[in-house]
Design a protein around this nucleic acid. Sequence first.
DNA 1: TAATGTAGTTGATAATGTCAACTATAGTCT
DNA 2: AGACTATAGTTGACATTATCAACTACATTA
Lengths: 141, 141
Amino acid sequence: MQERKSLDSLFQLVHALKRQLHNRIEQLNLDIAPMHVRVLKIINKKVPCTAIDIANFLNRDKAQVTRLLNTLIAQELIVKEPNPEDKRSQCLRLTEKSQMIMGEISKIDKQIYAQMTQGLNEQDLEHFEVVAELMAKNLST
Amino acid sequence: MQERKSLDSLFQLVHALKRQLHNRIEQLNLDIAPMHVRVLKIINKKVPCTAIDIANFLNRDKAQVTRLLNTLIAQELIVKEPNPEDKRSQCLRLTEKSQMIMGEISKIDKQIYAQMTQGLNEQDLEHFEVVAELMAKNLST
DNA sequence: TAATGTAGTTGATAATGTCAACTATAGTCT
DNA sequence: AGACTATAGTTGACATTATCAACTACATTA
C-alpha cells in the first residue's frame, strides 16, 4: 500500500494548496481565478511571452490559454502587442495595474509558502523539490 | 524565487499524474473519471464506509460526493446498504463487478508509481511522502 | 509555389469544485 | 416528552479547469 498512500498525500497537498491560494486571491477582489494568477506570473517572469509559451509551460491546451488571456485582457491586466518576429503571434505584457497586483500576489505566495513549510528546513525543501521535479519529468516522458 | 519554483514543480507533478491516471483509466473503458476511481478505492479500503467518510477523506463538498456516488451506483459499481447505526446514512459497498476492476486499477497504480519513481530510492520516497504529509497538514490548520 | 506546420480562436462538452437551501434523522437538554 | 441543535445526504445553480476538433492566418520547407 506504499504507493497508494504516497499518491493520496500528494493529491491532498495540492488540493489544500489550491484552496489556500484560491481563498487568498479572492480576498484581493480581483474577480479572477487561480489559473489566471498563474498566467500573470508566467507573463511577469518570461519576457517576451506568447500564448504558446504559456500553454507549453503549464502543459495545457491552447484553447484554455486563449480563454484565460481573454479574461485578463477584459480586466485590463494584460495587453497584447504584435510579435515582430511572427505575425501569427502576439507578445503579452502586464499592465501597470497588474504589475501592482503582482506585489500583493508575491506577498501571498510567500505567506502560504511559509505556512506550508513550517517545521521543514532548507535541506528538506531542496530535496522535496528535486524529487518533485524528477517525478514530473518521469511522468511526462 | 525559491518558493515560486517549488509550487510550480508541485503543480506540474500533480497535473502530469492526473493525466496519466486519466489516460490509463480511459483504457479500461469504464466511463468513469479519476475522482470516481478515488472514491472506489476509499470504499474498498475503509469498511464500513459512508458518504461522509469519503467527503472527509477527500476534503470535498458532500454535494460532489453524492454525485460521484450516483454515477457509481448507476454503473453498478457500488451499492448502498442501510446503516444499522444511523437511519440518515448508508453504508457503501463495492459490487463484484467493481471488485474485479479494482485489480486492474491496482495494476495501473503500480505501473504509474513505478514510472514516476524511476531513479529514486526507498529513502527518497519515504522522505518525500513525510514532507508532503506535513505540508498538507500545515496548510489545513 | 505547393505542401506542410504552427499560433491562436471558437464551439462543444467533460470533469471538478463550491455554495446554499432543503429533508430526514440523531442527539441533547430541560 | 418536547424543543433545540447538529449531522447525513440530496438537489439546484454555478464557477473553474480541462480537452478535442475544426478553423483562420501566417510561416516554413521542399
